[in-house]
Amino acid sequence: MPTLNPDTHACIGAGICTNTAPSVFELNDNGLVRLRTVDVDPADVEAVDAAIAICPAQALAWAQG
C-alpha cells in the first residue's frame, strides 16, 4: 500500500488537498494539513497524486522506498 511522507511543515493552509482527496487529507484547528492516514488506499492514489501536484507549498509527498 502506498505511503505518504508525513512531513508537512511547509503547509500554508490552502486546503486544496482536502478538496482533492478528502479521505486522506483534512485541516487541523490551525487550518494546516493533517493526514487522516499515512497508508493510502489504492483507490485514492490518483486523487493523492493530484493533491501532491497542486499543493502550492509543495508540502505533500509520497514516502521514499
Binding site: 493552509g13 490552502a14 490551525n30 487550518g31 502550492p56 507549498a57
Partner: peptide, 20 residues
C-alpha cells in the same frame, strides 16, 4: 518560499487558485 499575499493557515484565501 511561498509568497504571503493570500495568507497562511485557516484564513488562507479561498479564491487563490482562480486568481493564479
Amino acid at each position: 518560499r511561498m509568497p504571503l499575499n493570500w495568507g497562511v493557515g485557516r484564513h488562507f484565501c479561498m479564491g487563490r487558485m482562480f486568481a493564479v
